[in-house]
């Protein structure tokens, strides 16, 4: 599937600007990163065609988003809080959605097996939904989304509520699924994107703060992240732009942004640093 272009997308809800002038190119796997209320879910729903933007266009080379019928054929969607009828089995759930998607009876059985294998659900196909763990249920969500092999997979907050082990597994799965299709992952957890996405878009208050590859974002803060050992009583701490604080023996290891080029303790930045940097910069701009 070709690149998807979002141009000047605006959306208001209850007279509040939810999205403002969003311009974005989607190719490969894209992570939508932002705090709660940034407008990620609204943007996702606009891309899925579940809601319409007030203005702006979305299109790829062969597809115009005004033709929702065609667009929907190419979209797989995992909603933020995925849940399913409790008294049906995984197979029945996938079979029902496959049927509604118009997958023929013959291809559906094969498709369900392939999908279940892909998302590692083969052993629980005949287990009722109510007996699945949170991670398993999320896999069912992904399985239903990729049934019919859509060209664009949209995943909203995929790891919320999962334990650490499940999160790691799920991220690996998303990475795998993103190899032969576009995938948009909306999250406020930076690690979700770090391992799964080629490009990242950071949203705040309905605006795009930054888009680019992971290294583009890291470049933003390269040479600006400093680590130091301090006493918590040190008065100068208040003037620092802190990223994190960790206990280390009698002292604390702090991580912060510094614009001074003469720092000795400059470290290699992480994606979370870039994200926080942009958030703080935006806050500073807002205060001004």
């Amino acid at each position: 599937m070709e690149k998807i272009q979002l141009k000047n997308i605006n959306k208001q809800m209850k007279r509040k600007d939810i999205l403002q002038n969003i311009n974005l190119d989607i190719h490969g796997s894209l992570g939508l990163l932002g705090p709660n209320g940034a407008g990620k879910t609204t943007l996702m729903k606009i891309i899925t065609t579940l809601i319409q933007p007030d203005s702006g266009t979305i299109q790829s080379e062969n597809l115009n988003w005004e033709n929702t019928k065609e667009v929907r054929k190419n979209i797989g969607y995992l909603p933020q809080h995925f849940s399913m009828y409790k008294n049906i089995t995984v197979r029945e759930c996938l079979n029902h959605l496959g049927n509604l998607k118009g997958i023929s009876m013959h291809n559906r059985s094969k498709d369900i097996l392939t999908t279940a294998e892909n998302v590692n659900l083969i052993d629980v196909l005949d287990t009722k939904i109510k007996n699945l763990s949170g991670g398993m249920l999320r896999r069912v969500g992904i399985a239903q989304a990729i049934l019919g092999n859509p060209k664009l997979l949209i995943v909203d907050e995929p790891t919320v509520g999962l334990d650490i082990e499940e999160r790691v597994r799920f991220r690996r799965l998303l990475r795998k699924l993103g190899r032969d299709r576009h995938i948009i992952i909306s999250t406020h957890i930076v690690e979700d994107i770090e391992t799964t996405c080629d490009s990242i878009c950071i949203l705040k208050d309905g605006k795009v703060l930054q888009t680019g590859s992971k290294s583009d974002l890291l470049d933003l803060v390269r040479g600006k992240v400093v680590e130091d050992m301090v006493d918590l009583n040190d008065t100068y701490l208040e003037s620092l732009r802190l990223i994190s604080t960790r206990e280390a023996g009698n002292q604390y290891k702090i991580r912060y942004f510094s614009d001074s080029v003469n720092q000795n303790n400059i470290v290699e930045p992480a994606l979370e640093d870039a994200y926080l940097y942009l958030m703080k910069e935006e806050d500073t701009n807002d205060r001004r």
């Binding site: 899925t48 065609t49 579940l50 019928k69 929907r72 054929k73 979209i75 969607y77 909603p79 809080h81 995925f82 849940s83 399913m84 009828y85 959605l97 509604l100 998607k101 118009g102 969500g141 239903q144």
Partner: peptide
Amino acid sequence: KSTSMSDLTLLIDNG
């Protein structure tokens, strides 16, 4: 409505 089916079926043509 208590599941994600409403949203999912809306995304399927005539679903």
